[in-house]
Amino acid sequence: MKQLLAALSSESLKLKRTLALWMVFIAPFIVILLQFFILYDRAKFFAGRDVWGVLMYGVTSIWAIFMLPLFITLETALLSGLEHSGQSWKHLFAQPVPRWSVYAAKLLTVMGMILVSTVVLVLGEMGAGKLLSVLRPELRFHESPNLTMMARMAIMVYLASWILLAFHTWVSMRWKSFALAAGVGVAGTFFAVFASGARIGKFYPWLFPVNAVSTSPERMKLAILLGIIGGAIIAVAGCWNVVRRDVE
């Protein structure tokens, strides 16, 4: 445990001055901005509706189906890229610390970063609503939002994405190539568009985040359950695979 904390502390310092760190704020902000302008631009159309609901569902669905999977791909690739480009694996794995702690620290760092993004997303939704209540009073955003609902949705999406977090951490650590990691992530997200309609869609990992806020309770529970359990299994298997390999 002490070694894991040490490795985490070491990981956090590496984030200084990185794009990966900025992306934690930029990625949710882009999604918020998009939904903000949809509401701002078409205020007449949305006036009189459940505007907080529109904002919340709009933001969450863009985030869950599109931005989050790609964001996880990018963050894991950037973080592992620090080690690949600095040729640091040989240094890290020759230190007197268990190798699994290095792997676990990497995974937990990305998980933490995505969690922070999730919080930023919820705060952004509230901020966007407040701003719209001033700029577009006819939308009636001054009524208070259902904050519990907002947070719950974001957290469920986050939990369902653990399988992608674990998978992409493994891919990016196992292979040096940024293109490979990015390609896998983009392909996974791309096929999600087609898989969403199919019956098999509920077992497709890239759809777990969006399924986690599905109106079907069965789909929702399955996504969160498989997201967490699958994430744990891949995390352990990925760690096992990486720490036993020859270090380049």
Partner: peptide
């Protein structure tokens, strides 16, 4: 140990 090129983070 110092194996081949040093393992360094350029942005730090």
């Amino acid at each position: 140990a110092l194996v081949e090129t040093p393992s360094l983070y350029n942005h730090l």
